[in-house]
Design a protein around this nucleic acid. Sequence first.
DNA 1: AGCATTGTTTCACA
DNA 2: TTGTGAAACAATGC
Length: 258
Amino acid sequence: MPELPEVEKARALVEKKAGGRVIESVDDSDSYVCRPHAPGELHDALAGRTVTGAGRVGKSFWLETDGGEGPELGLHLGMAGRIIVAGEGAGHPKPLRNPAWDRLTIAFADGGALVMRDKRRLSRAVLNPDRSNLGPDAERITREQFRRRVGRGRGPVKARLMDQATIAGVGNLLADETLWQAGISPLHPAGELDHAELDHLRRELRAATRRAHRLGGVHKGQVIPYRRRGASCPHCGEPMERGKVGGRTTWWCPACQP
DNA sequence: AGCATTGTTTCACA
DNA sequence: TTGTGAAACAATGC
């Protein structure tokens, strides 16, 4: 599920429902998800700490402990991860189908728990995450930053938007939705966009992100249902085009996005 | 069976 | 230096 809107939802959930609670133990036995940590390292660092907040840049978020005095627990939901928090005395959140999909579990001293559940296994948990290679968050990037960072290079603008070092938080679906709303071809060289086009693109990115927040996810985007074979553009009726841009399957309308 | 998948990292190569 | 395409990673769903 996760692109920026879904991750922000997870962050807010953690802040609201895990904030103030004391960590009793951490099940970090999935050594792939918790790499490069050895099993037990997350537990040793976090047991006894209090969750005091949650931050986020792009698709990465983290738990703060002991008011910033304790270590941070960085989380990334990968392609299919989600966060579930069970309240006081509620025990472990009930597995949807397969208990093995719970890749990380934080048990609280009050009897509840936080679970990172991932059908696949591309989610990630790491202590004191390094965020130095992330660009400004897509929701907070200024117009000047956006012009400077996104509006450069010879590569296609979609690849530029999805580059987390350029701007953090935009994934495949949000990129397709934003470019369709903006009427800009995903193949357009980023450095050839003028200021007006870049400002417009940023505006549509913010609008698409807000809409996703409001409606419950990036998959609620207006063009997302039309990212399939045989579909026509919901604006003009032209057949949608499929291609590969920035390594990802890309759909766009050749008429609306010349 | 084969292919696709809302993500990231690495690597060969132009 | 920049950029690209492909592969790997893991697992599920159609």
